[in-house]
Design a protein around this nucleic acid. Structure first.
Lengths: 211, 211
DNA sequence: ACGGCACGGCACGGACCGTGTCGATACTTG
DNA sequence: CAAGTATCGACACGGTCCGTGCCGTGCCGT
């Protein structure tokens, strides 16, 4: 009874045959999703591609959406942690640029988009996505903002939570709604808007407009 | 050969039997979607509920997603047009509040959420949603912002496009990602952040934080 | 050597898909 | 009013995929 009844995604520490199948299934799901998109992703096809019986998939994941979530969240999040160079805007810009590159462009962009789409239909996917990706990410951003405020770079009553959502919101709006590209200049515009209005130093820089 | 080959949703001007079926189908789709959600919405069930053959559905809509789009966009958009009372912030707040009520709460909230979710999988739905709802809405917002700038309420180099996306983005972020409610106080915080930083008058008001 | 467990393969009933056919019905045209 | 035509509902079809049950096999620890 060593590794039994582990519901899903407990890759670390599994040296079993079980771990091999789990990884094979996720890899197959990822490859197929890139080829045909999540909408046409079937458990049957994933199992076949992974060289695995359907049961082996169903034993691990209760739904197609949660399998897809696990597969997509294998993406490398290392670049999305904030450094502290002392310059809050530069540090935020670095992560925002990397996030836009990673989540807004192939190969991960369309998958991430599909994942959020599925989260709109399936509450379990939505909850897991928040818990396993969004919340850690926002916590990191908030910590960096709080450090900047403590260092006196931001006004003491700077609204950290709101700033985080104003930094993220427009990027998600572009990704999910208008589906325009998230360019570096756009990120700069957002940063300028937030930190010209809310920081103590009214340092006017570029107001470059794209359109 | 009068009303033939009208692809879809040409309700106005149809007095045919065709119009009756079209409306019956959309009503059935809407009702079923509210009951079981878009994920479990099948053409068969819609046709059965509408008392209609499947062909009658397929003749009008090429996909389940586009049918759902037409059904959802029957919502009443009247309250989402900006007035011009002379106070840009008040006018924006009015529409934002109404939009949050309409699109963020039952009965339309979950449907709108599902619709955006489907847009992530289906480019046709995404394009149509933008063209038929998002773009008119943003155009209206932009027009109101431009009027305010022309009236001298905003700085001449105020970035209108960006402001629009900073006003919308955080609300969509809450609707689609964190799924937190879009409260009136949150709308006020967003408005304050944008118009404290970008308007010529640094009129500090409420910095009410919810959490 | 043995017992248990996860495995792959296979088959099943069921839900929907998208299409085809057919006779009935309503609208258009002359 | 009558002939013609487009659309309709009903039904049937092959196909895909779902989720589950069963069976024989191979790997595992004991």
């Amino acid at each position: 009874m060593s590794t039994r009844h582990v519901p899903c995604c407990n890759v670390a520490g599994m040296t079993d045959r079980r771990a091999d199948r789990t990884e094979a299934i996720m890899r197959a799901a990822l490859a197929l999703a890139q080829e045909v998109g999540f909408a046409k992703l079937s458990i049957e096809a994933v199992a076949a591609r992974a060289g695995v019986g359907k049961h082996t998939v169903y034993r691990r994941w209760p739904s197609r959406g949660l399998l897809f979530l696990d597969a997509v969240l294998t993406l490398d999040q290392h670049g999305l942690a904030h450094r502290d160079t002392g310059d809050i805007v530069a540090d935020l810009r670095e992560v925002m640029t990397r996030a836009a590159d990673l989540l807004g462009r192939p190969p991960w962009g369309p998958l991430y988009q599909d994942l959020i789409g599925e989260a709109q239909h399936d509450p379990q996917v939505a909850a897991a996505l928040n818990q396993r990706f969004i919340e850690p990410q926002t916590a990191d951003t908030l910590a960096r903002l709080r450090a900047a405020r403590d260092q006196g770079q931001l006004d003491p009553d700077f609204d950290l939570d709101l700033a985080m959502e104003i930094l993220s919101g427009p990027l998600y709006f572009r990704l999910l709604i208008t589906q325009q590209p998230m360019t570096d200049t756009y990120i700069d515009r957002v940063l300028h808007a937030v930190f010209a209005g809310m920081s103590p130093r009214p340092d006017k820089g570029d107001t470059t407009t794209t359109r």
